Simulated assay, not measured.
Amino acid sequence: MAKHLQKPKIHNVEAIAKSRLFTVESVDLEFSNGARRLYERMQPSGREAVLIVPIIDDHLVLIYEYAVGIEDYELGFPKGLIDPGETVLQAANRELMEEAGFGAGRMDTLSKLTMAPSYFSSKMNVVVARELYPKRLQGDEPEPLPQIRWPVADMLALLNEPDFNEARNVSALFLAHQWLNRG
């Protein structure tokens, strides 16, 4: 549908703020109708991430992880950045081992999501992991991540949980539900 649209011309990109983790850029754009605007965005990193929906014994495996942005623990699926040289499925298996203590015998990629694309270039690959076996790798988490198992048959009831709110987790839940019920 958007193939007929002309992308704005980028006149200038400059870093306007920098922290240990983030660089904010100012982007000077000119649209096809001549309108010009300054936008701000996080500097693109070129790295993608992965979110894993693990399934064992007809249950989803979820973890609690502290989210400093909301200053609380959030219930969700294991996730993390793809390291240089890793494939999506290699990163998914590594993150699953680090955060949930399982490896996967089978993995299926469901989708690639963007998050707030007006401000971020990041992409999240959603993967379903099955045929799980115990396997733990040391990750970068500062504390052990408590986990719970949730019945696959009642997976959409997670939407009623007060600490299951993060948009990527909710999207992955719907994608996994559709994939599991594909017929």
Results as ranks from 00 to 15, higher is better:
residue 115 M to Y: 13
residue 99 E to F: 01
residue 101 G to D: 11
residue 94 R to T: 14
residue 114 T to E: 10
residue 92 A to R: 04
residue 112 K to Q: 09
residue 83 D to L: 15
residue 104 A to K: 04
residue 93 N to Y: 01
residue 84 P to V: 07
residue 84 P to Y: 10
residue 113 L to T: 01
residue 98 E to Y: 12
residue 100 A to V: 05
residue 104 A to V: 01
residue 111 S to W: 04
residue 116 A to Q: 15
residue 102 F to K: 02
residue 88 V to K: 01
residue 102 F to M: 06
residue 116 A to T: 11
residue 113 L to H: 05
residue 99 E to G: 02
residue 115 M to V: 12
residue 114 T to N: 06
residue 97 M to H: 09
residue 98 E to S: 14
residue 88 V to Q: 04
residue 96 L to N: 04
residue 98 E to T: 10
residue 83 D to G: 08
residue 107 M to T: 08
residue 108 D to K: 12
residue 113 L to F: 02
residue 84 P to K: 14
residue 85 G to E: 11
residue 97 M to L: 07
residue 101 G to R: 09
residue 90 Q to V: 10
residue 85 G to I: 06
residue 109 T to Q: 09
residue 109 T to N: 04
residue 121 S to P: 07
residue 115 M to I: 13
residue 91 A to Q: 10
residue 97 M to K: 13
residue 119 Y to A: 13
residue 83 D to Q: 14
residue 120 F to T: 07
residue 90 Q to L: 13
residue 83 D to I: 07
residue 106 R to G: 00
residue 115 M to C: 05
residue 117 P to R: 11
residue 99 E to H: 11
residue 85 G to D: 07
residue 108 D to R: 08
residue 96 L to R: 03
residue 98 E to W: 08
residue 92 A to C: 06
residue 113 L to A: 09
residue 106 R to A: 06
residue 120 F to Q: 09
residue 123 K to T: 13
residue 89 L to S: 06
residue 115 M to Q: 10
residue 99 E to R: 15
residue 102 F to S: 02
residue 103 G to Q: 10
residue 101 G to T: 14
residue 106 R to N: 06
residue 117 P to W: 08
residue 90 Q to F: 10
residue 96 L to W: 03
residue 106 R to L: 02
residue 88 V to W: 04
residue 89 L to E: 12
residue 105 G to D: 03
residue 85 G to N: 13
residue 96 L to Q: 07
residue 115 M to G: 05
residue 90 Q to T: 12
residue 122 S to P: 01
residue 90 Q to A: 14
residue 92 A to T: 01
residue 109 T to C: 05
residue 84 P to W: 06
residue 109 T to M: 03
residue 112 K to E: 10
residue 101 G to I: 11
residue 104 A to W: 03
residue 122 S to M: 13
residue 101 G to Q: 10
residue 85 G to K: 12
residue 84 P to D: 14
residue 91 A to T: 04
residue 112 K to A: 08
residue 85 G to C: 09
residue 123 K to I: 09
residue 100 A to H: 02
residue 100 A to M: 07
residue 85 G to Q: 12
residue 103 G to M: 03
residue 115 M to P: 00
residue 108 D to Y: 00
residue 97 M to D: 03
residue 110 L to R: 01
residue 122 S to H: 14
residue 90 Q to R: 08
residue 99 E to N: 14
residue 112 K to S: 10
residue 105 G to A: 06
residue 107 M to Q: 08
residue 87 T to N: 11
residue 84 P to F: 09
residue 122 S to R: 15
residue 108 D to M: 00
residue 107 M to L: 09
residue 98 E to K: 15
residue 98 E to I: 06
residue 100 A to F: 03
residue 92 A to K: 01
residue 100 A to L: 02
residue 87 T to Y: 07
residue 111 S to E: 05
residue 118 S to P: 00
residue 91 A to F: 11
residue 100 A to N: 02
residue 87 T to K: 09
residue 118 S to I: 04
residue 108 D to G: 00
residue 86 E to I: 07
residue 98 E to G: 12
residue 107 M to E: 04
residue 111 S to T: 04
residue 123 K to E: 15
